[in-house]
Design a protein around this nucleic acid. Structure first.
Lengths: 100, 100
DNA sequence: TAAATATTTAGATAATCTTCTAATCAATAT
DNA sequence: ATATTGATTAGAAGATTATCTAAATATTTA
């Protein structure tokens, strides 16, 4: 969970995810989309991989990166806990009474 | 969007959100739940407020913090872009052909 | 085999982040 | 009025992060 939020906490990495939405790409083609050195992009890809947000496969001399949707589900579940479920019985909320 | 992911990229702040799920709390009561100084918690609350994930209201000497669900929706929409919508016509995915 | 290409690893630097203590501000209580 | 209580602000130290260049590794091509 920590790796997940860490990976998402960067505009470049989020853009990479949006790029991969439209299809797999090689590390080089991803790097070409940014005004940033290849090693930097490689590092971003590494963090995305650590978070399981992308998968990579070596294809000859290239490395193909692809989105991994399954981890997104995990995040969605986490967020859902904050959406009070309409089908579930209304729980009384603990309220603090402060002051007089 | 940046503030949002930044705020979420910390275990303590995520725990604070989970605490507030069950009802509003004062800054002090939140701080008591953590093994951390009050100023540190105050700073975490500030980042959560900057991200609009919580709202705060001064009640006399206390400050009451509450969850702000509405921003969660924004995040959900962002995540949804990665979930290929079943009702939408299947778009051909761009595929890279690498190697022979 | 040697050169070229694609990518990653290593190491350095600057910026940002987390946390602390001390000090300040604001509200309540003595 | 002054002391106490709740909370934030200021400033500093240490850790983490983003980025770079240079070097290394692996694969393909000449």
């Amino acid at each position: 969970m920590n790796n997940l939020f860490r990976a998402l906490n960067d505009a470049t990495r989020r853009e990479i995810l949006e790029l991969l939405k439209d299809g797999d790409m090689t590390a080089g083609d991803i790097a070409d989309k940014f005004d940033m050195s290849k090693p930097s992009i490689s590092h971003h890809l590494d963090l995305l991989r650590q978070a399981d947000l992308v998968a990579s496969v070596k294809k000859g001399q290239f490395v193909l990166y692809s989105l991994n949707m399954t981890v997104m589900d995990e995040i969605m579940v986490w967020f859902m806990q904050f959406k009070p479920n309409a089908t579930q019985a209304e729980k009384p909320r603990i309220r603090l009474h402060v002051g007089k």
